[in-house]
Simulated scan of single mutants.
Amino acid sequence: MSSALTDLFPHPIVQAPMAGGVSVPQLAAAVSEAGGLGFLAAGYKTADGMYQEIKQLRGLTGRPFGVNLFMPQPEYPGASTGSTGAANAAPTSAAVDVYAHQLAGEAAWYETELGDPDSGRDDGYDAKLAVLLDNPVPVVSFHFGVPKPEVLESLRRAGTFTLVTVTAPDEALAVQQAGADAVIVQGVEAGGHQGTHRDNPETDRSGIGLLALIAQVRETVSLPMVAAGGIMRGSQIAAVLAAGAAAAQLGTAFLATQESGANALHKQALTNPLFVRTELTRAFSGRPARGLVNRFMREHGPYAPAAYPEVHHLTSPLRKKAAASGDAQGMALWAGQGHRMARDLPAGQLVEVLAAELDAAATALSAAPEGGAVG
C-alpha cells in the first residue's frame, strides 16, 4: 500500500461508507479509534448535512477518517435542450412512468405518495466538493464513476488521499489515468450498490468475484487496491491481502454493529432465517444493488427500469413508510453475501476481533510448509 495511506491507520480494515443513515459519525469514530479507517457516507445528504457530520466526527476522534461521494449521473439520452443548447433536467422516461404505475398499489398499501423521480441527478456533488476543498479530510472516495483529473489533483493539493470504486479492470485503468491514489476493488459479493461506472442492464448479473477481480486489476494497473465484497472475518482479510490488496473494506460486518445507524429491522434481518439469500436488484433504486430478498424485491425487481436515481427518488417514501411501520418486507435490506456471519458487537471491538483473526491467519500461513496446506 502507498505509505501515504498506510500511515493513516494501523489495521488494514476500512469501514465501508453506507449511505442512507448507516455510516453515522459514531460508527466512523469507533472504527478509527480502534485502528481502522472509519468512513462517512455523503450520498443522499446535502452539502451542509455532510459538513455537520464531519464536524461531529472530528469532535469524537482525532484519528484519520474518510468521506464518500456519489458521482453525478449522466442525463438520459435525448434529454431536452433549451435555447442555449444546455441540457435541461432529464424528462421522466416512459419506463419510469410504467414502474410508477406498478408501484401505485404499494403507495396505497403504505398510505403514502410516491416520490418525485426528477428530484435531482447530481446529489449536490459540486457543493460537497467545495466543502471538502475548503475543509480537507484525510481520505475521499468516489462511487459510480471517475472524477475529473482536475478534481483529483485539487484534492491532492489539499492533502487528501483519493480512492475510486471499480468493478472491472477497464474501470481501474480509467481511474489510474485520471490520477486517483488508489482503487476500491468491489466484487459482486458486496452488499449495497455496485459501483459500476457504466450502468448496463445486460451485465446486471455478470459481475466478477472479488478474488478474481483483484487478480485482474493487479495485472492492469499499478495502483494500491482496497478489496471489498462479502468480507466478514479476519481470515478473509488475510486472503485478499495475500491476493495483492493493501486493505479490506467491510460494509455488512459493520452494519450489524451497535454504533451503526441502520434500522433495527435491517440489523435483525441479517441473521434472520426468514431471509436466506441475497440478490442484485434494481427494485429500490434503478441501479444494481445487493440486498436480502424480500417481498418488494421479488414482486418488483424483474420490472424495475435502469433509471438511477429516478427510481431511488420514486421509492423513497415507500421505503421510509415500510421502516416506520416495522415492515421489513418493504425495506431495502442491503447486505453482502456473507450477511449470516454478522456479529452484534461494538464497532471498536469488531475491529479488534478482526485484527486478531487476521494475525492468526497470517501466522498460520507463514507456519505452513512450502507447497503444503493449512489445516
Rank of each mutant, 00 (worst) to 15 (best):
M1S: 14
S2F: 03
L8G: 10
P10G: 04
P10C: 04
I13D: 00
Q15F: 01
M18T: 06
V22Q: 01
Q26F: 01
Q26L: 10
Q26V: 08
A29S: 14
S32M: 06
G36C: 03
A42H: 01
G49R: 04
Q52S: 15
L57M: 13
L60F: 07
L60R: 13
T61E: 03
G66V: 10
N68S: 14
E75C: 07
E75I: 12
S80Q: 11
T84H: 13
T84L: 15
T84P: 06
N88E: 11
V98C: 07
V98D: 12
Y99F: 15
Y99G: 10
Y99E: 03
L103H: 04
T112Q: 05
D116W: 00
D116C: 11
P117L: 04
S119Y: 00
G120T: 06
R121V: 08
D126I: 10
K128E: 02
L132V: 12
N135P: 02
P136I: 13
P138V: 13
P138M: 10
S141Y: 00
F144P: 02
L152P: 04
T160S: 13
F161K: 04
T165I: 06
T167G: 14
A168C: 06
L173T: 08
Q177H: 14
G179F: 02
G179R: 08
V183H: 02
I184Y: 01
G187Y: 01
V188R: 08
G191D: 00
G192N: 03
Q194L: 14
Q194I: 04
R198D: 09
P201R: 09
P201T: 10
E202Q: 15
T203Y: 09
I208E: 02
L213P: 07
I214V: 12
R218I: 01
T220P: 01
V226P: 02
V226F: 01
A227E: 02
A228R: 03
G230R: 05
I231C: 08
A239M: 02
A239N: 00
L241G: 04
A243G: 04
A246D: 11
L250H: 05
F254T: 05
L255M: 12
A256V: 03
A262C: 08
A269D: 01
P273K: 07
E279A: 15
F284Y: 12
P288K: 11
A289G: 15
L292N: 05
F296M: 11
H300Q: 14
P302H: 10
Y303G: 05
A307E: 04
E310G: 11
V311D: 00
L314V: 11
L314P: 11
T315A: 15
A322D: 06
Q329T: 06
M331E: 03
G338C: 07
H339D: 03
A342H: 05
L345H: 05
P346E: 06
G348A: 10
G348H: 05
L350P: 05
L358V: 05
A360D: 09
A362Y: 00
T363W: 02
A364R: 12
L365F: 06
A373K: 11
A373W: 14
